[in-house]
Computed example of a mutant assay.
Amino acid sequence: MGKFSQRLQKKVMTRGKTHGYCTICREYGKLTREHVVPQGCGNIEDKVIVRVTEYLDAPDKPKGNRSQGGIHFRTVCAKCNSLLGSKYDRELINFSNDIAKHLNHLTFGHVFNKITYRPYRTLKLAKAVVGHLLAANSVEETNSDKPLSNRYSMLSEFVLNEAAPLPEGFDIYYWLYPYKPIKMLRSIGSMNIINPSFRVAGDILKYYPIAFLVSYNSKPAPEYGLTKLNLPSTQKINDTAGVEVSYMRALRSDFPERPEDYEVLLMNDEVCTVAV
């Protein structure tokens, strides 16, 4: 118990050595700051970053590592940083800002559509989401040349190869997230202990106004109402596909990292963080 308590008291480190192994391509070199999520998605304010476990215990008084000018991780090389910024991030920014504008219409009493359906370059959108999740890693990973696991290796190749489709077995889901905390949850699983099955499993990125789940060989429980991102198998990088967003309801802000009755949560505390 003592060692566990000591580990929780350690600050989350987002900046390690200036040189190391990139968490996306795994090549050794100078590391750069990667904003998770892009600054264009509103990630520009000073934040305090803590572990999910700490935040769930004391959401009003987190004591963590202060990050100025938004949340950023010094975990990726300049080449991968540039790839995300120049090739993919603009689609994620456009998608996020469109949803935010629509939510603002509701706040100020303007005409409000309960559901929108618009075309986006969803392959670029998917690569941006995956790339930022790969960047939101422990700085300890930059100190070792250990190769990525098979799952993350496939996701890395998906980001690095502009023409690559989402690998077989992976799906990306999204849902409305009208809350301020930015949450990065890697390798997380919520399981029902009465009927043993994963309710939600994969990697999650949440920020105002949207949340994403990158799942592998699993589907979220249907009652959550998550929407699967439209990624046609023949889609090219600049092709568009229709994306539906429902504004009818929002899941609780701590879904799925706070287990409900008869649920258990499986996660790696080192790579599940919250910025507030």
Rank of each mutant, 00 (worst) to 15 (best):
M1A: 05
K3T: 10
F4L: 06
Q6R: 15
Q6P: 14
Q6C: 11
L8Q: 12
V12Y: 10
T14Q: 13
R15A: 13
K17G: 00
Y21H: 11
T23N: 06
I24V: 12
I24W: 01
I24G: 06
C25I: 01
H35V: 09
H35Q: 03
N43K: 05
E45V: 14
D46F: 00
V50N: 00
R51H: 06
V52Q: 03
T53Q: 11
T53L: 14
L56T: 02
P59Y: 01
P59S: 11
K61H: 11
P62K: 00
N65I: 10
G69K: 08
G70W: 02
I71L: 05
H72E: 14
T75R: 10
V76H: 02
V76C: 09
C80V: 01
L84A: 09
L84C: 07
Y88R: 09
Y88P: 10
D89N: 04
R90A: 04
E91H: 08
E91N: 03
F95R: 03
N97A: 00
D98L: 07
D98G: 07
N104E: 05
H105C: 13
F112Q: 15
F112D: 13
N113G: 12
I115V: 12
T116E: 00
L123S: 07
L125R: 10
K127P: 09
L133F: 08
A136P: 00
S138T: 13
E140V: 05
E140T: 10
E141I: 03
T142Y: 06
T142G: 15
S144Y: 08
P147Q: 12
L148R: 14
Y152G: 11
Y152T: 02
S153R: 09
E157G: 07
V159Q: 06
E162V: 01
A163I: 10
E168A: 10
Y177G: 08
Y179A: 15
I182E: 03
M184N: 14
L185V: 07
S190E: 00
M191K: 10
I194H: 06
F198M: 07
R199D: 11
R199N: 15
R199V: 11
A201H: 06
D203H: 15
Y208M: 05
F212T: 08
F212G: 09
S215G: 08
N217R: 13
K219C: 01
P220L: 09
L226N: 04
L226K: 02
T234Q: 09
K236H: 14
N238L: 11
T240G: 11
T240E: 14
G242T: 14
V243E: 08
E244K: 03
V245W: 00
S246W: 14
S253Y: 08
F255P: 01
P256N: 03
P259K: 02
Y262R: 05
E263W: 14
M267H: 14
E270W: 03
C272P: 07
V276W: 01
